[in-house]
Design a protein around this nucleic acid. Structure first.
Lengths: 244, 244, 244, 244
DNA sequence: GTGGTCTAGACCACA
DNA sequence: GTGGTCTAGACCACT
């Protein structure tokens, strides 16, 4: 697709700090860190990512400039994750200009997450079920709370729990490549969409429940179909929103 | 899966010449270049890959040391692709030690190539069909020739045509992420397996024909099923060979 | 003046790369390097400034961002000094808003350069005279050339030679503090003025000649008076220009 | 002078606590604090100097080690300024080894303070005169008291008043650069000389009176000459003392 | 041989 | 114990 007729495409050496940046963005976008959380310290990040502090700093500097994190100095300081400043109007405009990309991203999600769901149904262990059920409960509670308080559930909290569930399913499928593909697919779709779904998918959890039930019953076909339906629901919601 | 609980995994910066090396290996492995062929000149490669000649030289030097290419100097010289020296026994030993990896790779192929086949059936255009049919014919001819001459079809030629067909299907699916995933999946599986299939899959083309027919008939379910069957056949063949 | 009643004022730790930046700006502004010149290499600069390359790079990065230098990579590369983009109108506007600062800067120049000229007259050695005379000749030649060719002498070339002469006088005064003061004074005045004087002070060299003659004759009073007159001429020229 | 031919000299980054140390030494040396006085609290100093307490502590620790201040703990404690333990013999030896530096420092003082005095004569306002006259009176009284009591006027008190007068003149000159230069010049000369002048310049005030008179009469030439004479007197006194 | 990047370690200022 | 900065040295890619 991107290769020349000769099968060689330009290589681009990626600086270490860009790789680190990717990692950090990704872990924030998939909700591993929520606003207000403190990232690990520079030294820890360097350790985890097996790079030098210099490289971590380069990435951090960019995130700070973007306003994604706040740097606090001194003892007790650190890097504080900031809420991303989503801009619905802007997002909508961008997505409208990229209809095809959105469609492709969803198609891809349907494929890899559907397959993951099927495999999860076939391979899930008790521990997987327990984990997924717990995530379901957390989300239920969070949604409930957000309704009662009349305060919409925070977008990022939703994102975090949603991602956790989908990635949990992918993990239960026990195929590393597939897991990576799911992560990748979510990432591709998620980035500009965060603003939208926090307010729209109040009933997302019902679908999650269906998926979990199918996985529990070890019915691969059903698990796949349910997951596909869930993702296509999301797609419809998004497209309706884009039409408005 | 490979990520820590915190979603961060070590980054590894890849030297430009390694990326180039990857590209070149890949294009030789997928048969873009056959033994005896001359690679583009250093300058051309540098241009195509958008790196400096230094980097190309570094990659070339490694390939030469490995015996994958022969460097001929002077006028009329260049880089001549050598036949890879596959070692069946070694390959078999390695794959036996990595049963799980092999299984995962095939599972992943089934998923992404199956999906690609389905989408291709739904979205294929006339030009796609023409292209795929041509590839089919070429392979037919090549196989026939190789039988008549009683010389086994050259491994790399088979590889080249096989890859071209599968990637052609993926291209017809018109989803960039999926195409990349297919490429990635083939790459994961292909590398050590080249030695095996040149001699075993004499009837591979029948399956290809079935896939193409399904795609042509725009029957998504059938296309998916046929592709899955084809890949699972390959899997069986490989596993039988590993048992021996 | 700037101290509190208690004699303590806030301290500001100056980062090494800022100090380096100052040094480099200063040496470019006083014409040590002209547009098109290549700065010493990173490694040499680090050596000369006795800092690490990292620090040099930090300063260089800022200069590059400002467009003051151009970075060329590879063998034969380096940092190429760019012509500063003076903007007469802008300069005039700024200077009009800072009349007092301009007056103070000239007053200060008159004091320190006048004193330097006097001391130079009293202390000059043969070598000093030779050096100053040579600078005079160079400037003469440069001015002449610029007239004959009908191309105005390049601003920076003028700056360079002018600075060299004045600093040469200060050096002949043999008082380190005074030399620093002269450098400082010129720096304070010079920065935004470069654009103006290249075209206006065509006869600057006559004054320089007078100063040199007074120094040569060891007449301190005359040397001081001549230098003061020269600087006040410049001041008048500038103020006339500001009036326009 | 100190620059290489290329106009770049080594940079030295100065630690914040050294800057603080400088400030504190300076304010004690110019008599802002007299022996027995209590410095502001650590917190206040940190505030005034806009650094953290850590830095203040580092500076304080050094001053304590040198015996310049006494640290008293607990309620009513604080940092108590101690009388500097000047050592005439030592000072004399050091200055003899640095004859040239002393000469340069005085030359520089003559230049900048002479010019400051001239400008002050030309620009002084009534308030300036009042301030200077008051300082004169204070010094008169202090000197008188010290004679009557047969106790030599405390060195630091002299220093304080002397500095105040000279800086007052510089302030009246209304040129910030020049004021800084005067401060700088005094600082360069003052540091090692404190021990000497407390006992020697009993008649310093007469000169101050002359300077003030000249400034008052708006006679720039006279004001400059008087100040120069005063400084050169001091120089003579010092040189005589060094000869002994 | 140039600039570009990274590493490992250190010291500092901050809170 | 945190981030901020610097050092010294290395390897790499570029031209």
């Amino acid at each position: 697709m991107t290769t020349s007729s000769i099968g060689l495409k330009p290589v681009r050496q990626i600086a270490a700090h860009e790789l680190v940046l990717d990692q950090m963005r990704r872990s924030m976008e998939t909700g591993q860190f929520s606003p207000g959380d403190r990232l690990p310290s520079e030294r820890e990040l360097a350790e985890i990512l097996s790079v030098s502090r210099t490289v971590v700093r380069a990435a951090i500097a960019i995130l700070e400039r973007e306003g994604r994190i706040l740097v606090r100095r001194g003892r007790g300081g650190g890097f504080i994750v900031q809420a991303p400043t989503y801009n619905s109007t802007e997002t909508r405009r961008m997505m409208r200009q990229n209809r095809e990309g959105v469609r492709d991203a969803f198609d891809y999600r349907v494929i890899v997450e559907g397959a993951a769901s099927r495999l999860a149904a076939e391979r899930r262990r008790t521990a997987d079920l327990a984990e997924l059920r717990e995530l379901l409960t957390s989300m239920e509670a969070a949604l409930l709370a957000s309704f009662e308080e009349q305060t919409p559930m925070k977008v990022v909290e939703f994102q975090r729990l949603d991602s956790a569930f989908h990635l949990g399913v992918a993990r239960a499928a026990r195929n590393p490549s597939l897991y990576d593909a799911v992560e990748d697919a979510r990432r591709k779709m998620w980035l500009p969409v965060g603003s939208v779904f926090g307010r729209l998918e109040k009933n997302a959890n019902d679908r999650h429940g269906d998926v979990l039930a199918a996985i529990e019953s070890q019915n691969g076909d059903l698990a796949e179909a349910t997951m596909e339906a869930h993702i296509n629901d999301t797609r419809s919601t998004l497209e309706a929103w884009l039409q408005r």
